[in-house]
Design a protein around this nucleic acid. Structure first.
Lengths: 227, 227
DNA sequence: CTTCGCTTGTGATCATGTGCACGACCGGAG
DNA sequence: CTCCGGTCGTGCACATGATCACAAGCGAAG
């Protein structure tokens, strides 16, 4: 592979964080090197896939030995852009928004909740888990001042598209959407979604079909998220 | 297509709930028929994909006209197993578990939270949003009595695999995992995961690479979840 | 220096998913 | 009855992703 022509496949990108977490566990256990096979087991994937995925990052392994855990962890963090913090803005200070602000896992993993934003003036000024609620009209200034890199949409579905537009207008190029709605963003903006009801409905489908197909057909395999 | 040989592709299954939501909107707007093109726009996908996806359910469209909204909605609900409720058990009554129990969207969409379960005896007996907390050892009886179809893991990562094993042992064949850990389940059990930190890290990757590649390379397209 | 066991990196193959293009078919107009 | 605009259903080609299998390369032992 030539040096800088590594366009990393989307499917691989989605797995890198899983490897990262596995590597972090290995560091905790003071394990210095790891084989693709062991890493595959920890990440719940196939060993060949691990090797191919890691090869997109560069040739960081040693044949006959494996991968140096700390070095690989560092390289992967660098590739994922986790060597610095990404301040996050949560839009929507309702149930979900508050719960997300309360969830400590974000800050701990380099995504500090810098600000909560809501359209409801009566919520502005409240402090939730140490984070102040601002009015959504302040988004552009807040984004610039706080260096917001990622916006999280935690509003009702009806407001989601408008909020997405405002985030884009405020210069936020990465959006995580929790609202049960399809939203569209311009090219150059990344959008991912988390939809709980959707996940449950997918589970429902497979369960229902397991129940129905009690005749000879082979059982469904456990289907995992598309990434 | 012969009558009952419709093995629906995984990618299609993941899109069905999105179509379902779009159809529900159309019903609200009293719209009787819809073309694949319109539905595609609402669901944020390609029209040909819509037609192919829907064709797996059967030939429910009319050439020159489109799809009957209500009829298609009914057929899709049936296929997804949404004609009856799926009682859900949430394992872990901490921050996340309580937030999930509070989230009304589940019950509303046919997934009532039947019970909260925790290993901490001091939490047992509490009522959270109308749902009583039981001890995790009671899982088998609860599962049978309440007809639990789906288990939601909302525990710390360290407990996730053990909880999954207990759910499977209690006869729960569909699991939604919120814990940031890879867990494995036997064949015949469906497993899906929701990992917030992972989503943020994926966004971080693309943002970092947009920032870096300010030279001639074409911009990344907004990457959506693999389904 | 040579051999040997082990593990990586990757070419090749197969499976799955996407998108186009077009024939099949419907309903309405004349 | 025939024509015609419109939309579905699907065969086909292409893109992406998963898996296999194996040569290349490393380190240790003798």
């Amino acid at each position: 592979m030539v040096d800088r022509i590594r366009r990393i496949p989307e499917a691989t990108v989605a797995r890198l964080p899983v490897y990262l977490r596995s590597l972090a566990e290995l560091v905790d256990e003071k394990i210095a090197t790891v084989s693709s096979e062991r890493l595959a087991e920890m990440a719940g994937v196939n060993a060949a896939k691990v090797r191919k995925d890691l090869s997109y990052l560069g040739s960081y392994g040693t044949r006959g030995v494996g991968y140096d855990v700390e070095y690989l962890l560092f390289q992967m963090s660098r590739e994922l852009g986790l060597t610095h913090d990404w301040p996050v803005a949560i839009v929507g200070a309702g149930n979900l928004g508050q719960a997300l602000a309360n969830y400590g896992g974000f800050t701990q993993r380099g995504f500090p909740v810098a600000v909560l934003v809501d359209a409801d003036a009566s919520k502005v000024g409240q402090i939730i888990h140490g984070v102040r609620v601002h009015h959504i009209d302040e988004l552009p200034e807040l984004s610039a001042t706080l260096g917001i890199g990622i916006g999280i949409i935690a509003t009702p579905a009806s407001a989601a598209q408008d909020v997405a537009d405002r985030l884009v207008a405020a210069g936020v190029a990465s959006i995580l959407n929790f609202a049960p709605a399809v939203i569209s963003v311009p090219d150059g903006t990344s959008l991912r979604k988390v939809d709980l009801a959707l996940e449950l409905q997918i589970l429902s489908f497979y369960q229902e079909h397991r129940d129905l197909e009690s005749d000879g057909a082979p059982p469904h395999q456990a289907p995992l998220a598309p990434g």
